[in-house]
Design a binder for these strands. Sequence first.
DNA 1: GTCTATACGCTGATAGAC
DNA 2: GTCTATCAGCGTATAGAC
Lengths: 189, 189
Amino acid sequence: MDTAERLIESTRELLWERGYTGTSPKAIQQHAGAGQGSMYHHFSGKPDLALTAMRRSAQELVAQADARMSGDGTAVERVSAYLLRERDALRGCRVGRMAMDPDVIDSPELRQPVRETFAWLRGRLAEIVAEGVAAGEFDTALDPRDTAAMITAVVQGGYVLARAEGSQEPFDRAVRGAVALLAARAPGK
Amino acid sequence: MDTAERLIESTRELLWERGYTGTSPKAIQQHAGAGQGSMYHHFSGKPDLALTAMRRSAQELVAQADARMSGDGTAVERVSAYLLRERDALRGCRVGRMAMDPDVIDSPELRQPVRETFAWLRGRLAEIVAEGVAAGEFDTALDPRDTAAMITAVVQGGYVLARAEGSQEPFDRAVRGAVALLAARAPGK
DNA sequence: GTCTATACGCTGATAGAC
DNA sequence: GTCTATCAGCGTATAGAC
């Protein structure tokens, strides 16, 4: 792994762990084993490096989520596969975490990958819910876009509960609660 | 409002806006119109002041939530009242925000009010869901604690979506999605 | 109680040598 | 490409005068 690559991966880890405000160029350099000059040779500064790292994390998240949601199975199964995917809830979401960072949210450039990620997630889930409604799996009273937002929110909020409690449990309960509610919505049940 | 009070309120505002890591003693002093010596006379340092501010925000949240959830009405109505309460989603949750701050989560003392707040919220909602199940409002297949975690998570996750998007809309969709799903869970429906 | 002075390391860079 | 030097300002206090 070359120096630029190590800097990006180090930034990804530190942004995950400490957020944007809590991550300094110096900490990134030490984690990457690179000097000051090296970092400023490859990147114009902290925002540039953070943006590169965030874009990569965003792409990774989309790819992983898409793999869960676009496989075989009914709509309920695919949504459940997304919700029940194993996650280390105490570490949180690499992308969602950025939404609480004022320096990220206040910068249109830095916010863009975060915005796009969640816009895509909500849109993709809404398609699947709509397919489920069309297939008779879900009650026609369910609004696909509202339901998709709810599903996305449960995961992100689950991280908050888990970190507050210092335990994975509230996260698992939240997603199980959502799956139970969704799975029972078949009109025939 | 005396000096100590202004320091606490200023800290509450800054913690809400910028988080713990992003809030410096200097910024607090300036916001409160107080000098260095003044702040260190009333509080031992940043953690002490932050803890005082966080405890107050936690109590406030519990009081407001309890008012929504302990009124008259069916279980569905009281849960919906909690979910649909008007919120400025772009500002986020004063308490939930702290869960993403590593310095808060890594300190048992600072984490305590955050942990207690969400433990209380999930417990209170679980009671109400259990009442709803007993009253025949909800399907007996619903696990009250899982459902309570899901409800709490939807609100916290809604804030993430709203801030990512720069709009209140995803938050409103998420809570409406949750209300629709819950309201439809009456066994007769 | 509040003020000013002082301190030391960190933040986020820039400049120029190698 | 990477290294070291240098910098102005901030973060988080402590000490002591008033």
